[in-house]
């Protein structure tokens, strides 16, 4: 059995590499975008908030799987062609940005008006207030919810399977179908568990860093 595991491990690990790539790029792009849209959702300019609300409703109200299929198989019909990887990333970033925007909106709204006023009488600019006072407080508040989404993302990334990207799940499935054994799927589960364990550990560290103040 060990020989068999060693045999299929390289293909599983290369699948895991793809999973991680999609994971990292989605996080790196969608968290900052989520902050920006979250700020937009708290703005007083109604057309902007209405537009973002519509976007969030659309992205949260339809399955990510549908969005993936729509981008990769649907959009070419009207002449917009992505390659597989870009299509996956595009759909994931669009989808996760919507969730992060909602999370950051909640965090932003929980910062008391007094904090802004106290910054204003100290003559800090709006951006200085955001950067030094508001955003750090919002981050502390949203860490648990963001953590949930981040863990979800690791597992959601398996959906790219449907547009033919060779991720971890696909690698396992291919091996199981070929060799008629459960081992590859069990290994896939173990690798996902290891990935989420690492992310959980990192999230714990981040949370601890922010627990020096209340």
């Amino acid at each position: 059995m060990l020989n068999y595991i060693m045999e299929i491990l390289p293909s599983l690990l290369s699948g895991a590499g793809m999973t991680l790539q999609i994971f990292f790029w989605t996080i790196i792009l969608s968290i900052p975008l989520g902050v920006i849209l979250g700020l937009g959702l708290t703005s007083k300019f109604k057309p902007l908030t209405a537009l973002i609300k519509f976007y969030v409703w659309l992205m949260r109200g339809t399955p990510l799987l549908l969005q993936l299929i729509f981008v990769f198989y649907g959009l070419p019909v009207i002449g917009i062609v992505f390659d597989r990887y870009d299509a996956a990333l595009f759909a994931f970033v669009l989808n996760y940005t919507a969730y992060f925007a909602e999370i950051f909106r909640g965090g932003l709204q929980s910062i008391l008006k007094g904090q802004y006023e106290s910054a204003k009488v100290l003559r800090l600019t709006y951006w200085q207030t955001l950067r030094k006072i508001v955003i750090p407080q919002v981050f502390k508040i949203v860490i648990p919810s963001v953590g949930n989404e981040v863990i979800n993302l690791i597992k959601d990334s398996s959906l790219v399977y449907v547009i033919g990207i060779g991720d971890l799940l696909r690698a396992g499935n291919v091996a199981t179908a070929r060799d008629v054994t459960l081992i590859p799927l069990v290994l896939v589960g173990v690798i996902y568990l290891l990935l989420t364990a690492v992310v959980t550990y990192i999230l714990g560290k981040v949370e601890a860093r922010y627990s020096t103040w209340r």
């Binding site: 008391l112 904090q115 006023e117 100290l122 003559r123 800090l124 030094k132 006072i133 103040w213």
Partner: peptide, 19 residues
Amino acid sequence: QLFPNLTVMENITLAPRLV
């Protein structure tokens, strides 16, 4: 309305430094 995320020293010196 002190800033909870900043130490006492940072609360006091933030605006003098930035502004």
